[in-house]
Design a protein around this nucleic acid. Structure first.
Lengths: 118, 118
DNA sequence: GGGGATTACGTCTAGCGTAATTATG
DNA sequence: CATAATTACGCTAGACGTAATCCCC
């Protein structure tokens, strides 16, 4: 499951036309069309009714929309959850011959933390 | 953003070893390793500490885990939201010469619904 | 004919699997 | 040495863009 397709769905549902939504997403109209087709194929349902004046949500699309919004919000929260932690220090330990290095390394093994190089 | 990587993350975080998680996901150990690397690259953070006995969560990984669970649950709800709606009828209107067809077609234009053929 | 979406097609990147490599205990 | 993860490499499927096509006002 790809979230880019879900974001495409939401923007197209809001704007009603691929031509408006596609530039916003940094892709072409054709790519947006294929994203929606791919999403519909994945879900096994038709999300939009295609008209020569744009796209309108089907009942499936209307049912999917709120869940899609919740989904992208959850994704944004998940992305924000990393990197926001205050990093204390960053120490590279390569020489085990000196006592402080051993002490730091022991602490490293006892309490693993990210951004260590080894 | 790809949810398969998030599901891989959760299973590896639970089981602690790629070898156990990979078959569960229907992929090889190497593919699981690359999925995690891809996810970490996407997030810009290291989620696991690699050891010769398996993988352990870093602080970033611990912070990401609950959001990841919420994310996959939201995805499952979103997928279930389509197709569960009760379908009432399905009518193909091709002949505009008869009055009932016109009436149905007008209703169609006023209130689009999925599963129409045109 | 004009605006809008789709299809066709070439290209390019991402993801997987098999096999070989590295690293730890 | 055994175990577990990584890297190398070839392959296939998916995604994008350009160009051409279809469809309804």
């Amino acid at each position: 499951m790809d979230l880019d397709g879900v974001r495409t769905f939401l923007l197209v549902a809001e704007l009603g036309r691929l031509q408006d939504a596609a530039p916003e997403l940094g892709i072409t109209q054709q790519a947006a069309s294929k994203r929606l087709r791919s999403l519909e194929r994945r879900l096994g349902a038709t999300l939009f009714t295609r008209t020569p004046r744009g796209l309108r949500l089907t009942v499936d699309g209307q049912a999917f929309a709120p869940h899609a919004r919740e989904l992208v919000l959850a994704a944004d929260r998940a992305v924000r959850s990393v990197g926001s932690v205050d990093r204390a220090i960053r120490v590279d330990v390569t020489n085990r011959r000196i006592a402080p290095a051993v002490a730091v390394e022991d602490f490293h093994r006892a309490c693993p933390i990210s951004n260590w190089t080894s």
